[in-house]
Design a protein around this nucleic acid. Sequence first.
DNA 1: CACGCACCACCGATTACTTCA
DNA 2: AGTGAAGTAATCGGTGGTGCG
Length: 292
Amino acid sequence: KREDHELVLELGVGTVKRTEQDNQKTQQQPEEDAHNQEEDGEACFHSESPVELSLGCPLLPASAGIGSLNSEECRREFDVSTFVVDGDTVQGRSLSTSSLPMEVPVRQAADQEAAEDEENSGVGGGARKKLRLSKEQSAFLEDSFKEHSTLTPKQKSDLAKRLNLRARQVEVWFQNRRARTKLKQTEVDCEYLKRCCETLAQENRRLQREVAELRALRTAPYPFYGHLPASGFSTARVCPCDNKVITAHHPGITTSSTVVAPPSPVSTLFARPQFGPFTVHPVLRRQPSATS
DNA sequence: CACGCACCACCGATTACTTCA
DNA sequence: AGTGAAGTAATCGGTGGTGCG
């Protein structure tokens, strides 16, 4: 956790808390898994050596625009140098598709073969078989997605090979993942626009009240203005739209000039929020429902 | 250089299936 | 055990970019 950020998003990936169901499924395929491990020449995810991966993820500045989400920056901030093996913290490992220090167990080697058989045999008329990716496969794909939301053909085939999936499956996963990200961003944008609307409605009400007051002043007898400053200005306000100072003289003469005004609460709110694994809009960050 | 064509990657919408409350 | 909602893998049809003849 870093001191200069309010929140640190932590993602846990691992097999420490395996459900009974998972264990049962694993037991159903011990031979296949063992076979795959031997084939790859690397040990992985033995039930007696659970792996937990903790990902520290500092928030990016909320001022980052929606279009400016820089995956490079995200990646640099994305500290995955620590994970835990059997309770011991291991430092200094980086996470990438090429250097992840573990092989990912596959749940569906048999299903994979069946699907490929079906593909090769050209049997397509029956009900499609939906395969569920294992937690580890999903986590690995998720990590890859954090590095790059799109894949080159080589990255795709590498990932497919590593996860024992078809390249098409990897491709589809990334397509669906992008769609989910976009959907969530849309939801965040919607929430943000609602807030903008509320704020503008408040501002509108306030301005209408002010207009009514000014009209009342204009129609009042002259001595009523005795409290005004010698300059004769009755109001001086910064327009949130273009940072112009609106000054109203009596009676009814209005001038304007551009100044550099500090950001108003309104303009601060209008900084567009950014959904993503790394950013939370400052307004939304302080919601009671937040984890803080 | 313009055109048509094939190929590919991607997207949005949708379906089909699984999981969970 | 049955059921609906939510999540997600997979499919389909459309679009834009690219290379080639």
